[in-house]
Amino acid sequence: MNPVNYLYLSALLFTIGATGVLLRRNAIVVFMCVELMLNACNLAFVVFSRMHGNLDGQIIAFFTMVVAAAEVVVGLAIIVSLFRARHSASVDDASLMKL
């Protein structure tokens, strides 16, 4: 099967994730959309690795996973404490950090 098709899939997933990040208010959903985007990138990396015949892309995919895991830890913690403080998980409610 032509590997380019996987790239189309990756692009589709990324777009879905990006749209979710931009349009949804719920922090958890936004967070999941970010994960979706990361995984879309991972897919693309792996495809490129396959296409070029070296392992660089796969290695980067692992790195991405580690980063994503770390992000989940920190991000969920922030969301939980935000929810505790404001009784809401909407990202638009947390708009105090501005000049």
Partner: peptide
């Protein structure tokens, strides 16, 4: 210029994209 910094995460995301 600082009005651009409105504190809404999603608007920052838009500008990043």
């Amino acid at each position: 210029l600082r009005r651009v910094q409105n504190g809404f995460v999603r608007s920052y995301a838009v500008s990043m994209f």
